[in-house]
Design a protein around this nucleic acid. Structure first.
Length: 572
RNA sequence: CGGGAUGUAGCGCAGCUUGGUAGCGCGUCUGGUUCGGGACCAGAAGGCCGCAGGUUCAAAUCCUGUCAUCCCGACCA
């Protein structure tokens, strides 16, 4: 029995001031979630139903792909994390608790340590591999800045699967299965998404893909090619060397010019008319304690991940102005590669540039007509910049486009990073001991719910995709005091329930407007309205949340109409 | 953690400059009139003015500290 009068979905007329983005505002307003503390939320009945639907789709596809569901502890002993080295590496992002004996525990931010230990203890033979284990569970990460409601919580629901294989060929098969399963999952949820190449980041390993639900408010920038299949996160998107668009045959004499007070690229554009793309900027970084310089074209953004990966650095951050001044004799805004006694890493584009301008490592002076090779040399010439819209596709050279997305899934090939650290090995067919080859595969379940809202809403509220809607149908008798309306509503309600359709009967003694507004806000896909005039002709109104037209349907046909709409929208 | 802002009723806000009985709208409760896109009338309940100190005859208001929340940056499902 689901009657709106009894259902706990406290809707709000006004937007809580703490919420910034659509999904956060709407999930709060529609009575799906309430905040306990920053980045930690309670899920109310409607949200719980959506989460369960997402989980079930995920579960079915994981099982289909050969996964086996397990449940591992959230509280994990410190020793395990020390074994992998991550007790210290994970840093402040890990919630730590201590028991009465002062022994440390982590609230699991992820489960590589514990699952590798688990598998190591009981799997010893190639005959038991591959093994794919997963769980759906709360994860804990003490994010520096939780934000956007469920988008970046400190406690969140995640599906994590770990694969254990005998060799890399077998890992490829597991990885492909997961890749396909993830596509099936997002297809089944009717979400518009894109698979992109990604950096594997701190988790380790090499190959990695992210699954992005497309939404303008997404935090991730994706570059993709319409001609070929290439798509990558901006962190990963590769920039090939492009030839200088206006090459000159003569390298002019280097010239030092006085530029009092001019510090930024824009200052030089505005005051001296030097275009951004004829300037070079120099950024100083501390890489595991060593100060190094990165140089790139004035209008480009440095991709710190590319730099970090090239250097193989654990920690990379911009040098502060004091150490910059100490090394270069000048402050920010007057730096340049000429005469710089640091390792210089130049972007591919810089090698193509001629007669460019840059800081002179002396406050209030710049150089003009600088040429790399003649005036300075680089330790390495590498891809260092963020790709931008219009850049040539690294595969087919067509112009790349950009789109924003929300990262809801991420799959990694881990290799032996954790099996080596935790000692997870097996005996192969030749009797040799080998480390297991691992992969890990995550889906942010609670984030997926938020992403679905982010992608599917209008000014009236949420528009749930049918496969994950908390209920399929809401029945609204226009006037709760009219007996014939209430009886007709109850009748349809019973018929739908008998067909196994998930339906809410809005039996509240509210004005019609209130009921319509709430129905739209909570985003139920199908609305059946029972009004006085049409009822006399035994008709009711059926409206799809995502369309503006209302259809009059004979009472006797309502159940079939509803079933058809649901069936048509459960799959693309 | 650096930068910015905000904490007053369930939600949204005013009051603070210039200290003097804590207010408005929505929501909630009661009664009545209404009833197809957030009704109207009458009445009511609901506040350690984030917390702790200080100044003062007197503090929501001024001062100090502290905590929390939100936004921008680095991190990630």
């Amino acid at each position: 029995m689901v009657k709106a009068s009894q259902l706990f979905y406290p809707t709000l007329r006004e937007v809580p001031s703490e919420a910034e983005i659509a999904s956060h505002q709407l999930l709060l307003r529609a009575g799906f979630i309430r905040k306990a503390t920053a980045g930690v939320y309670s899920y109310l009945p409607l949200a719980k139903r959506v989460l369960r639907k997402i989980e079930n789709i995920v579960r079915e596809e994981m099982d289909r792909a050969g996964g086996q569901e397990v449940m591992m502890p959230i509280i994990q002993p410190q020793e395990l994390w020390e074994k992998s080295g991550r007790w210290s590496l994970y840093g402040d992002e890990m919630f730590r608790v201590y028991d009465r004996h002062e022994r440390g525990f982590a609230l699991g931010p992820t489960h590589e340590e514990i699952i590798t230990t688990l598998v190591d203890a009981d799997v010893h033979s190639y005959r038991n591999l591959p093994l794919l284990l997963y769980q759906i569970q709360n994860k804990y990460r003490d994010e520096i800045r939780p934000r956007f409601g469920l988008m970046r919580g400190r406690e969140f629901i995640m599906k994590d699967l770990y694969s254990f294989d005998v060799d890399y060929d077998s890992l490829d098969i597991s990885y492909k299965k997961m890749h396909a399963a993830y596509q099936a999952i997002y297809n089944r949820m009717n979400l518009k998404y894109r698979v992109v190449e990604a950096d594997s980041g701190a988790i380790g390993g090499n190959e990695s893909h992210e699954f992005m639900v497309l939404a303008d408010s997404g935090e991730c920038l994706v570059l993709y090619c319409e001609t070929c299949e290439y798509a990558a996160n901006v962190e990963k998107a590769q920039c090939n060397a492009v030839p200088n668009p206006s090459p000159v045959s003569v390298q002019q004499e280097i010239e030092k010019i006085s530029t009092p007070g001019l510090r930024t690229i824009q200052d030089l554009v505005a005051n001296l008319g030097i275009p951004e793309h004829e300037q070079v900027k120099t950024l100083l970084y501390s890489a595991d304690g060593d100060i190094i310089a990165a140089v790139l074209r004035g209008d480009r953004d440095l991709n710190e991940i590319k730099l970090k990966n090239y250097l193989g650095a654990e920690q990379l951050f911009m040098a502060d102005e004091d150490s910059v001044r100490e090394r270069c004799g000048a402050g920010f805004g007057s730096l340049g590669p000429v005469g710089l006694r640091l390792k210089i890493y130049a972007d591919l584009e810089v090698a193509q540039m001629q007669n460019f301008s840059c800081g002179a490592n002396e406050d209030d002076y710049h150089f003009c007509n600088v040429n790399m090779g003649r005036d300075f040399t680089a330790e390495a010439i590498i891809d260092l910049r963020n790709a931008e819209a219009g850049d040539p596709c690294p595969i087919c050279s067509s112009g790349l486009q950009t789109i924003r997305g929300i990262e809801v899934g991420h799959i990694f090939k881990l290799g032996t990073k954790y099996s080596d650290a935790m000692g997870a090995s097996f005996i192969n067919a030749n009797g040799e001991e080998k480390p297991m080859i691992m992969g890990c595969y995550g889906i942010g379940v609670s984030r997926t719910m938020a992403a679905a809202v982010e992608q599917n809403n209008d000014s009236n509220g949420i528009i749930w995709p049918m496969p994950i809607a908390p209920y399929h149908v809401i029945i609204i008798p226009v006037n709760a005091n009219k007996k014939e309306q209430m009886e007709a509503a109850a009748d349809i309600y019973k018929q739908l329930l008998a067909e196994g359709i998930e339906v809410i009967l809005d039996d509240r003694d509210e004005r019609a407007g209130v009921k319509f507004k709430d129905a739209d806000l909570i985003g139920i896909p199908i609305k059946i309205t029972i009004g006085p005039k049409s009822l006399q002709e035994n008709l009711v109104e059926v409206k799809k949340r995502w369309e503006s037209e209302t259809k009059l349907v004979p009472m006797v046909k309502v159940v079939n109409t509803v079933k058809e709409i649901i069936a048509a929208n459960m799959k693309k």
